[in-house]
């Protein structure tokens, strides 16, 4: 049986992609950010998942303005890094796990979570930055050490799903994974966040106090976080802070009782408060 062993959340700031691609990791601005993931890379190398389910949002890359799927799952054999306006990122292509992805999609739909099945898509910084941060800065001719199933949630067009819906979706995802007969070790990522606003006169908003409460709650009392309305995310953490509902999707896929293995919080990363946590199922 397939099994979820751990969950990882991390911000997926596009400037991190640029810093990696332009080899700025040792510059004073970037050095503390990459240092914050040194433990995580070691942990991941020892943890060795077979499959990563990577919950993120598409930033108008795979989906244009014609369609905004609320919950989608990538069922393709492989996924290329998207051209977001400056060419495709020089990272390895991502190998999917179509059999597991198709199983999850069907299981979830029959369990009343109506997934959008995506048979061909490019993946943007929302997916490739977390891969870099946890698996290292691999070049296009190398290979990621595991399979990846992209799991985009709409947070671009309002309303996005509620935090509670995301958490419940995580529950349904877990049931689907546990019903898969092959023995597979699965790690679920929930990415985006934390405080950030990229637009308007309020751009640059950072709310460390609120972010810290959210990090604490994510480990200890995620159900309380599912009651936070969208307006609170936007008011307190900025218009793009809403991405944190995707962390609740990850959390819903874990046990209620988890061990917080690692936490990292850093301001600033471009316009963003960068947050990262590793939770292991007890």
């Amino acid at each position: 049986m397939a099994k979820i062993t751990a969950g990882v959340t991390t911000s997926h700031v596009p400037a991190i992609a640029a810093a990696i691609d332009l080899k700025k990791q040792e510059q004073p601005y970037w050095q503390p950010i990459f240092k914050g993931y040194e433990f995580s890379k070691k942990w991941m190398a020892e943890h060795k998942p077979d499959v990563v389910i990577l919950i993120y949002n598409d930033h108008a890359s795979a989906f244009d303005a014609t369609i905004f799927p609320t919950f989608a799952i990538g069922c393709a054999d492989e996924f290329l890094p998207a051209d977001e306006g400056w060419g495709r990122r020089p990272v390895p292509k991502l190998k999917g796990h179509p059999d597991l992805a198709c199983h999850i999609a069907q299981h979830m739909i029959l369990n009343e979570f109506d997934m959008t099945v995506v048979n061909s898509m490019d993946v943007d910084h929302g997916l490739t930055v977390p891969m870099n941060l946890l698996f290292g800065d691999l070049g296009p001719d190398e290979e990621w050490p595991c399979r990846v199933i992209p799991f985009p949630i709409n947070v671009v067009q309002y309303p996005p799903p509620t935090g509670k819906r995301c958490y419940d979706m995580g529950n349904a995802l877990r049931k689907a994974i546990e019903a898969y007969p092959e023995d597979l070790k699965v790690v679920v990522f929930g990415t985006g966040g934390m405080s950030h606003q990229l637009q308007g006169t309020r751009a640059g908003l950072i709310n460390k106090e609120w972010d810290t409460k959210f990090l604490n709650g994510l480990t200890a009392d995620p159900k309380a976080l599912t009651r936070i309305p969208h307006s609170e995310y936007v008011r307190e953490t900025g218009s793009e802070g809403i991405e944190m509902v995707m962390w609740l999707a990850m959390r819903g896929a874990l046990n209620e009782d988890v061990t917080e293995t690692y936490r990292f919080y850093h301001v600033p990363c471009s316009n963003t408060a960068l947050g990262h946590i590793i939770l292991e199922n007890k």
């Binding site: 308007g200 006169t201 316009n271």
Partner: peptide, 22 residues
Amino acid sequence: YFLAKLFSTDGHSFQHVAAIMT
């Protein structure tokens, strides 16, 4: 996120455009 394709074409970052908007 759509406008990002335009400012990336111009060679600018999110931070560049955020600063202008503020």
